[in-house]
């Protein structure tokens, strides 16, 4: 065998080896960081035809706090104008004397003005518009407590729309006596929450995760006070249905907060409600 042939054989062998080593290198650098585990789960989710936008890996801070629906709204309600109102328990239910027209594309702008007006909405400055919770028939403003939005009807204003897209009235709950029960603590990242939710079989195949947000959810009631904690809230849309179901993950422990049958809007004690 001449030298040239030996060189060619060696060249072929080494090129093959290079390709092999390169593949090996590429593969091993995938399983590198801690996030790799979550990435695998995310990949698994994609294989299950679950659609979602890429979750963030950032950790946040949140509080445990207690609050109640007390008499602040009742006191403030006396100075409200251009509406007829009544109380259902601690909830303020009001009907505008003239339905408010919402020009298309200016829903938020129009309602922001109303909410900011203390003669129309009590304590409106503490609420902010939530595009995530709002729907065609209802616009929701959430109260902001302890640096976060409250995704619970105990701290919300819900504007009801009629078929002509006019605001006919609203119902409001206000959280007062807010007390931080513990200093700020770190939450898990959105990615971890999402992967856990999936691993607890809360996201069926083919579902769509429309949005997610870190928001406060009521965990329990003790000594007459509601106790809230930060949760990752995911809006899951099951392929066969047109409604979103809100799934909540305890942002400290990663546990899925179960609040009964997720599809019932009339679940009196439930934080889970559906929006269409």
């Amino acid at each position: 065998m001449n030298f040239k042939r030996i060189q060619i054989i060696f060249l072929v062998i080494f090129i093959a080896m290079d390709v092999f080593l390169f593949l090996l290198f590429n593969r091993s650098s995938v399983g590198n960081s801690d996030a790799a585990g979550n990435n695998n789960v995310l990949e698994e989710m994609r294989k299950d035809q679950i659609s979602f936008s890429k979750p963030t890996t950032k950790s946040h801070e949140g509080y445990y706090f207690s609050a109640d629906n007390g008499s602040v709204l009742r006191q403030a309600a006396t100075s409200l104008q251009e509406q007829s109102l009544r109380f259902s328990g601690t909830e303020l239910v009001s009907e505008f004397k003239k339905p408010v027209k919402l020009p298309s594309g200016e829903t938020k702008k129009t309602l922001d003005k109303i909410v900011a007006n203390p003669s129309l909405i009590a304590r409106g400055s503490e609420y902010s518009y939530s595009s995530q919770l709002s729907s065609d028939s209802e616009i929701i403003y959430v109260q902001r407590v302890a640096k976060g939005p409250v995704y619970s009807h105990f701290g919300q204003i819900r504007f009801a729309l009629n078929s002509q897209k006019r605001v006919i009235g609203y119902s409001q709950n206000y959280l007062e006596n807010v007390k931080l029960l513990k200093e700020a603590s770190k939450t898990i990242s959105e990615e971890r929450a999402l992967t856990w939710l999936y691993q607890y079989n809360e996201i069926p195949n083919g579902a769509k995760v429309a949005w997610s947000n870190l928001a406060y959810t009521r965990l329990l009631t003790a000594r007459g006070q509601y106790v809230f904690l930060p949760t990752w809230v995911f809006a899951v849309k099951i392929s066969s249905s047109s409604t979103f179901v809100l799934k909540r993950v305890n942002a400290y422990t990663g546990e899925v907060i179960k609040t009964g049958d997720g599809n019932q809007t009339s679940n009196a004690n439930s934080e889970i409600f559906t929006i269409t």
Partner: peptide, 16 residues
């Protein structure tokens, strides 16, 4: 180090 860490994939489930 990632190469020697391939076993960490099995640990991941425990982590979660």
């Amino acid at each position: 180090p990632a190469h020697s860490n391939l076993s960490s994939r099995t640990k991941v489930t425990k982590n979660t």
